[in-house]
């Protein structure tokens, strides 16, 4: 399985993602420069976290016009696996590959800490190594993670199992206190209709090995590997 990690100017979790995939999960993974016009030969694409184009204008708003994004869009339409983490999630929203938008955190502050998310749909390509309702311990690090969409969109996401992760407490209870940014319906991650495109605010690459105090994030990558191996 060949993974590509897109490098936008200002990406800063690109190297971490490559480390998690390559060094920890022994995957064949390499960088894709944002000016590439093709993603031929890759089986999964990660849009990593960071501050592409300095988050100037609006998070992800400039990156989505990078040449590579057209190729990523086609790749996604063909059913290729696309994972957007944090800034990558924001780019997917701006590119229209996922619905909704990000507002500033309700605290109006950047937030970086470990928290818990609940696996709401264990059947997606990115969660099939998890159990339904499983609680993962993962970190967040963002300023704009306050997911917003109109009520109809939220309802449709919920009804179709497209809310993949919700913020919760350590026991799995979804509460306002466990929500770090005010996102609607405690949304931490959503997928597209087909399930092959996932956007999530927490950073699985930051918790894919025990030395980083949690290896729960590896389950997201392992799920994708399992999905791909099944064919």
């Amino acid at each position: 399985m060949k993974w590509g990690v897109v490098v936008f100017p200002g990406s800063n979790c690109d190297r971490d993602t490559l480390w998690a995939l390559g060094d920890e999960l022994a995957q064949d993974a390499s960088f894709i420069w944002h000016q590439e016009k093709s993603v031929e030969g890759y089986d999964a694409i990660v849009l990593p976290g960071g501050f592409s184009y300095g988050d100037y204008l609006r998070t992800g708003a400039i990156a989505r016009f990078s040449p590579v994004m057209e190729a990523v869009e086609k790749f996604a339409q063909r059913g290729g696996l696309v994972l957007g983490i944090c800034n990558g999630f924001q780019i997917l929203l701006e590119a229209g590959l996922l619905p909704g938008a990000m507002l500033r955190n309700s605290s109006l502050q950047f937030r970086c800490h470990f928290l818990h998310i609940r696996v709401e749909n264990e059947k997606t390509p990115f969660t099939l190594a998890c159990n339904k309702g499983e609680v993962l311990r993962v970190p967040i690090a963002h300023n704009e993670g306050n997911y917003y969409a109109d009520d109809a969109t939220i309802k449709s996401l919920a009804d179709n199992g497209r809310i993949v992760f919700r913020y919760c407490d350590e026991h799995g209870a979804v509460t306002p206190e466990a929500n770090p940014n005010g996102s609607m319906d405690s949304i931490a991650g959503i997928c597209n209709k087909a399930g092959n495109v996932l956007g999530m605010m927490p950073h699985p690459e930051r918790c894919s090995e025990a030395v980083l105090s949690s290896s729960d994030g590896a389950k997201v990558f392992r799920s994708a590997i399992k999905f791909w191996e099944r064919g």
């Binding site: 800063n12 979790c13 190297r15 971490d16 480390w19 998690a20 976290g49 502050q109 950047f110 937030r111 970086c112 800490h113 970190p139 690090a141 950073h203 690459e205 930051r206 980083l212």
Partner: peptide, 11 residues
């Protein structure tokens, strides 16, 4: 203070 700083990037 420190929850406002990204203290984990670079893993």
């Amino acid at each position: 203070v420190y929850r406002q700083y990204d203290h984990m990037v670079q893993v």
